Simulated assay, not measured.
Amino acid sequence: MVDKVVIVTGGGGALGKAIAAAMAAEGASVVVNDLGVSLKGEGGSSTVADMVAAEITSAGGRAIGDATSITTFDNAQQIVQRAVDTFGRVDAVVNSAGILRDAIFHKMEEAEFDAVMKVHLYGAWNMSRAAAPHFRQQGSGAFVHMTSAAGLIGSIGQANYAAAKMGIVGLSRSIAMEMQRFGVRSNCIAPHAFGRMIESVPGLSPEQQEAYMAKRRATTRADQVAPLAVFLCSDGAKDISGQIFGARGNEVYLYSQPRPIRVLQRGDGWTSQSLASTLPGAWRSSLTPLERTRDVFPWDAV
């Protein structure tokens, strides 16, 4: 990552901060973008991004703080231009910014859905689109987007968050395919790291919540995800694009992507009645159950 310039959105949070610090430690110049808002996206302070940048600088790295919102395209262009004006170019964007507005679906308000979409999905699109012309002109570049098991597998009370995170998967895949000829890569990471995005876990007593959090702090640290983000932005991953990775504790894994797994054909076509009499029995064992993340990852992280 020596001499590369990286923008990390959400760079003041646990995960974003760890990624920004890891990028700088590998020799990259970093734009730490963070509004300094609460988990719900409320408030805001430019000091959060500036403090992370100052820590990086004190450790011998190169970084600047930026508190511009990523929820509009004009703002995203300003962030990218600031990277270019300050460091001379931009080589990678890590879309890590996020908020939560958890609510059961039938009680979720439009504003709760919209706010999460604006930060996660629109934010990722805005930043990626703003950087794309620079990547195209120089014939290189890397995007890393944070998705989530909430979208890939499922989560209760997070329809807005899950929808945004699955949208990011489609966005990343399209970027990877369309910008391949310009030497630009795009990948996703679904992190299992302790941070703000997991501090809102419904259904647990205070005692259970604290025990859960203590375990997560010890076994799923943000600094264990950061190396994967650095790798995907580096030249070492020059042939890897359009993929979905996961990181949990000392584990790194690759997610499958939707492909047809079973086919039913009927020469005279299908009716709803013939489907009802054939499909459930034929495909019952192949249907994806309504699992949660804890069902898919039943073992402890180490």
Rank of each mutant, 00 (worst) to 15 (best):
M1L: 15
D3M: 13
V8N: 00
V8W: 00
V8E: 01
G10T: 01
G12E: 00
G12S: 07
G13Q: 03
L15V: 14
L15K: 03
L15Q: 01
A20C: 09
M23P: 08
E26M: 13
V30C: 08
V31E: 03
N33K: 04
N33R: 04
D34Q: 03
L35N: 07
G36K: 07
S38P: 02
K40Y: 06
G41P: 05
G41T: 09
G43E: 11
G44A: 05
G44E: 04
S45V: 02
D50Y: 01
A53K: 03
A53V: 10
A59T: 10
A59W: 01
R62I: 15
A63S: 09
T68L: 04
S69E: 12
T72Y: 05
F73K: 11
V80W: 06
V94P: 01
V94I: 15
A97G: 07
R101D: 07
K107N: 10
E109K: 08
E110M: 14
E110Q: 08
F113I: 15
A115I: 13
V116S: 01
K118N: 14
K118D: 14
V119I: 12
L121Q: 09
L121T: 10
Y122M: 14
Y122F: 11
W125T: 09
M127I: 10
H134K: 12
H134T: 12
F135R: 11
R136N: 09
G139L: 07
A142D: 04
A142I: 11
H145A: 13
H145S: 13
A149I: 15
A150V: 14
I153G: 00
G154L: 12
G157A: 09
Q158W: 03
Y161A: 11
K165S: 10
I168T: 10
G170M: 13
L171K: 06
S172L: 11
S172V: 14
I175C: 04
M177P: 02
R181E: 10
R181D: 09
S186L: 07
S186K: 02
I189Y: 00
H192I: 15
G195E: 01
R196T: 11
P206G: 03
D223T: 10
A226F: 07
S234D: 04
D239S: 14
I240L: 15
G242H: 02
Q243I: 14
G249L: 07
N250F: 13
N250H: 06
E251V: 15
V252P: 03
Q265N: 09
Q265H: 08
D268P: 05
G269V: 08
W270F: 15
A276K: 02
T278Y: 02
P280T: 09
P280E: 02
A282N: 05
W283T: 14
W283G: 14
R284L: 15
T288D: 08
P289F: 02
L290F: 13
E291K: 08
F297W: 04
P298D: 04
P298R: 00
W299I: 15
V302C: 13
